Amino acid sequence: MKKCHIAYLACTAALIGTGLGAAPSVADHTVHVVHPGQSIQKAVDAAEPGDTVLLTYGTYHQSVDVSTPGLTLRGVGRGTVLEPAAGASTGSTAPSTGSGAAKDSKGSKGSKQTKAATSCAASGSGICVVGTKDQNVDGVTIAGLTVSGFAKNGVYATEADGLTVRHVTAVKNGVWGIATEHSVHGVFHDNTARDNGDAGLFLANTIKEEQGATDTEGTVVEHNRLEGNRIGVTVRRLRNLTLAGNRVTGNCAGIFVVGDENKPKAGFVTVRENRIERNNKSCPKTARLDALQGSGIVLTGAEDSLVTRNVIKDNVGKSPLSGGIVLFKSFVGTTSERNRISDNLLRGNSPDLVNTDTGKGNTFEGNSCRSSKPAGLC
């Protein structure tokens, strides 16, 4: 494998010579190859829809904005690492919602883009996929790399349609490992999010505004590994989304599906076939949420969701939200309704099933468990 990797890079170097370059590829798309010490943003700005920007092995001390539709930004594996530049922003401002690939009035990629290229770094994030309210950025893929140590987020996307994030390792970022808002048709698979300040994966309708839940139109979160975060996965004020086959362990809480008083409510979320174990890290209370420890799956303020065929073990804590699967009335008083909790295997949680919600139509059936609050749910 090592020889193949070296041979691949050697062939790439032969195609492009020395320095930043581009090699023609199939279907008239171009592969732009970047080496450590060169500008990722420069390659992204030069790319056309459908092109690939390939980052070779090594560490890149920079951030990058992507708003070219159909672009693939890809490394060669975990050894392709993006870290903050020296003296980078502390992330005190929100991620940019402008277009990092806008053309100037003459149609060339000029000074506007150079200015936009700093927006992701200024926001404290590593990779930003940015569309606008009037025009989503479609079909972007981020793959095969590590984003580490950013003040806010490893990967952040807004106004994205069909974003794919795969084989990305997001580690020790200050807020979220991988995060999206205002986005649809997302695919997040085979990623690792570890030791991030808040959620490893965070998906929301909008971060800063009050708004009803939005339809993700079938976003899928599958086969990811989420470890040591405050929350493994947070789904906030969204509908029509699936979380499947993820491994979630060592967080303060595993999976949160969160709604509030806004309409429409959060819901129609499927949580299936995940393995959720020992999420017993202790996290203090925040302005929005009680202290966390020992929570497997929590539904709060959600409706019409299905939690099924999950393996949930040894989640133990002293938080009001502790337990294997927990239905909890939201902190603004919104109940969860018509959720189905079925055919899950629960062992060693404290307790296995919890329903402190007064909402109507929630059902518990076919679960293999030994303890519940109130009694009788197993």
Rank of each mutant, 00 (worst) to 15 (best):
G366F: 06
G58Q: 11
G177L: 08
N280D: 13
F328L: 01
G294P: 02
G100F: 04
D198T: 08
N310A: 10
S350E: 12
L203H: 05
T56R: 04
T164P: 05
N279E: 13
G70F: 11
E303P: 02
G126R: 10
A291W: 00
K115N: 11
A7Y: 02
P320Y: 08
S25H: 14
N315H: 09
T180I: 06
F268A: 11
V76L: 14
I40W: 09
G77S: 07
E181L: 03
I341V: 14
H35E: 07
K112L: 15
S350T: 07
A179W: 01
P320Q: 09
A213D: 07
G294Q: 09
G87C: 10
T219C: 05
A160Q: 06
P95N: 08
H5L: 15
A157M: 13
V64C: 07
T192W: 08
T59V: 12
A253H: 01
T164M: 10
A43M: 13
G232V: 02
N153M: 10
G177D: 06
G301N: 12
A375R: 14
D190S: 12
V257W: 03
S368P: 00
A102W: 00
T249W: 06
N339F: 11
G186I: 12
K42W: 00
R338A: 13
N344D: 12
S295R: 02
L163S: 08
K313T: 15
L299E: 05
I207F: 14
I127V: 15
S63W: 05
D161Y: 08
S183M: 05
S183A: 06
G77W: 09
T118D: 14
I16W: 01
Y156C: 04
R78S: 09
G70N: 06
G70L: 03
I16V: 15
E48N: 10
V311A: 09
I312E: 05
V140A: 06
T214K: 13
T97M: 01
R338E: 14
S371Y: 01
C252M: 09
R74F: 02
G212R: 04
N205V: 04
G77L: 06
R278G: 04
C4T: 06
K112A: 14
E365T: 15
S63A: 15
T146P: 08
P264D: 06
D357W: 04
S295Y: 05
M1V: 13
H29A: 13
S342V: 15
L201S: 01
L377N: 07
V307R: 01
K360H: 09
P351K: 02
D45N: 12
P36R: 00
F328M: 00
D357V: 03
G228V: 05
V258R: 12
G139L: 07
R370M: 11
G107F: 05
G267S: 07
A23T: 14
F202W: 14
K103W: 01
G200K: 08
S99M: 03
C128H: 08
G200A: 13
V233M: 06
G177A: 10
N339Y: 10
N344L: 04
G21F: 06
F202E: 05
D215S: 14
K3A: 15
N310V: 06
A266C: 12
G149Q: 13
R309N: 14
Q113C: 03
Y8I: 12
L238N: 01
S123I: 03
G58E: 12
S125R: 07
N251W: 04
E217K: 14
T206Q: 13
V316D: 11
P84A: 10
L306R: 10
